[in-house]
Amino acid sequence: MWSFFHKLGSPPWLYRIAGTILRWLLPVTIVALCVGVTWGLLYTAPDFRQGNSYRIIYIHVPAAAVALAGYYVMAIAGAVSLIWKMKMADVAMKSCAPIGAALTFIALVTGSIWGKPTWGTWWVWDARITSMLILLFLYLGVVALYEAYDNKEAAGKACAVLTLVGMVNIPIIYKSVDWWYSLHQPASIKMTGDTTIDPSMLYPLLLMIASFYALFTCCLLMNMRAEILEREARTGWVKKLALGYRS
């Protein structure tokens, strides 16, 4: 058990194992995304009330769900790097931010496009939408804060603090549709109680949610690999790797 944690802190080991995982996870993810998109776009019946516009759900909900989950990953990595000064946790935290920002952006834009035919407006200052916008700014804030510091250790510390303070936003996003009842509909898929969505629509949605989780994992591992190389550029193992690299 402890040797596993020890390895997790070792850059060359992490670089190699991430590469091994990506070799099969990346193709699986891309195939799953293609299947899910085709299924949702062309092989499901339209919603009886919203018509075809509801098909946006197959990217909107997965992007929003994984944007939130990604924040947990970033916050846990931030806490670990703050408490135990683990360098690879800092790498993980930094690598989460741009992916989280991209997914939050997708959730906001697709939600806005979905809102036009359904609610008759592109944007409302609804609690769910506003708190998601804050999530986007938190992710972008971490990206910007890293760039703002010359001292990378201080940058990591500042970002970890920002990430942890930003955690207060997460329960607000979850509960916003129940606390402030406005245009955004409450959750259809619930861990407890009845799910209010037809199975023919649920299965492609679940596939898309799983695919987006896999997508996040792939992007995270790829970002971490690049970040590790950059930080370890002066070490022997990276030099050896670069020597064998054919461009």
């Binding site: 098909r55 946006i56 834009v109 035919p117």
Partner: peptide
């Protein structure tokens, strides 16, 4: 898509571009 096509397809197109970006950039 009974008039909803432009909304649905543009949402998917934007999503595709962003996903391609986060996969290719690293």
């Amino acid at each position: 898509m009974d008039g909803h096509g432009p909304y649905v397809w543009s949402a998917y197109a934007i999503c595709l571009v962003v996903v391609a970006l986060i996969l290719l950039a690293p």
